[in-house]
């Protein structure tokens, strides 16, 4: 897919809570085609200690409103600065980057999307995409506490939502992989994004049950488009760049 360097306008910056902001971007021109699982490299302006762009998942694309959503967690100076963006300001993005999730084998598939923390970001776009194509989706979303569960109402538009929190403040208490839905249901495909230990646990569940499973990895990146070779992960085919061969990998390919 063709990549672009775009100056997009911040239409709205919605503070979800002290840790997370949802930045809604738009443009006078139609946004380029983007697929679920892809990400943007966002330039951080006016942050003296932030030199590189920040890789941020595409949270949602609303083609009717020409909107691109970015869900950002304040981790360091760079992401804090991005979360301070004001309506009307511009944000410079290299987009779309990386591969995308692959569609389940058949339309009858029972699909489960498992997300943790800010890792839920690409799953909203993917859930909407699957829903529009007639797939039956469920979402299993986890967080440390209720304030780490994000966009639950948005997810509910596209399927049944199950939640877990480590402190029991929302949904079942525990980790996503301990949720009762995993015992009751037979899923045909699982897609996951979140903290690495969570994705590894999801991958272990999927391989035990022999279920097709893709995970979306995170990594520190310099370029985001395969030039620097900094963001590799170990795979059955050797070191591969998360930015170009990923971020979405079939669990059978990963050596983690």
């Amino acid at each position: 897919m063709k990549k672009f360097i775009l100056n997009l306008v911040v239409k709205e910056n919605i503070t979800l809570n002290t840790q997370y902001s949802l930045i809604i971007l738009t443009s006078a021109d139609p946004l380029p085609p983007m697929l679920p699982g892809q990400f943007a490299e966002v330039r951080v302006d006016n942050a003296p200690n932030t030199f590189l762009r920040r890789p941020i998942s595409i949270n949602f694309v609303d083609t009717t409103k020409n909107e691109l959503w970015l869900l950002i967690q304040k981790v360091g100076e760079g992401t804090k600065k991005l979360c301070e963006a004001k309506s009307g300001e511009t944000m410079n993005l290299v987009v779309p980057l990386g591969n995308s999730f692959s569609l389940p084998e058949n339309i009858e598939s029972e699909v489960l999307l498992v997300g943790g923390g800010v890792g839920i970001a690409p799953l909203l776009f993917w859930g909407a995409y699957l829903f529009e194509r007639g797939y039956k989706c469920s979402f299993l979303l986890g967080g440390r506490s209720v304030e780490n569960l994000l966009q639950l109402d948005d997810f509910a538009k596209y399927g049944k939502v199950y939640t877990t929190t480590e402190d029991g403040s929302h949904g079942e208490k525990g980790f996503v992989t301990q949720h009762s839905v995993l015992n009751g249901h037979n899923f045909d495909a699982i897609y996951s994004c979140g903290p690495t230990p969570m994705m590894k646990a999801v991958a272990a569940y999927a391989s035990r049950k022999n279920i097709f499973c893709e995970v979306s990895l995170e990594n520190t990146m310099a370029c985001g488009f395969g030039a620097c070779l900094c963001c590799v992960t170990d795979t059955t085919e050797g070191h591969q760049c998360v930015c170009t061969e990923g971020p979405v990998f079939n669990i059978l390919k990963l050596k983690w």
Partner: peptide
């Protein structure tokens, strides 16, 4: 050459460190 293991990159003020190792 497979290059060095991950992590291979660290951002610094006004720059970056890399340890790609000629992959």
């Amino acid at each position: 050459r497979q290059g060095n293991p991950y992590p291979r990159m660290a951002e610094t003020p006004s720059g970056m460190l890399n340890a790609v190792g000629l992959q």
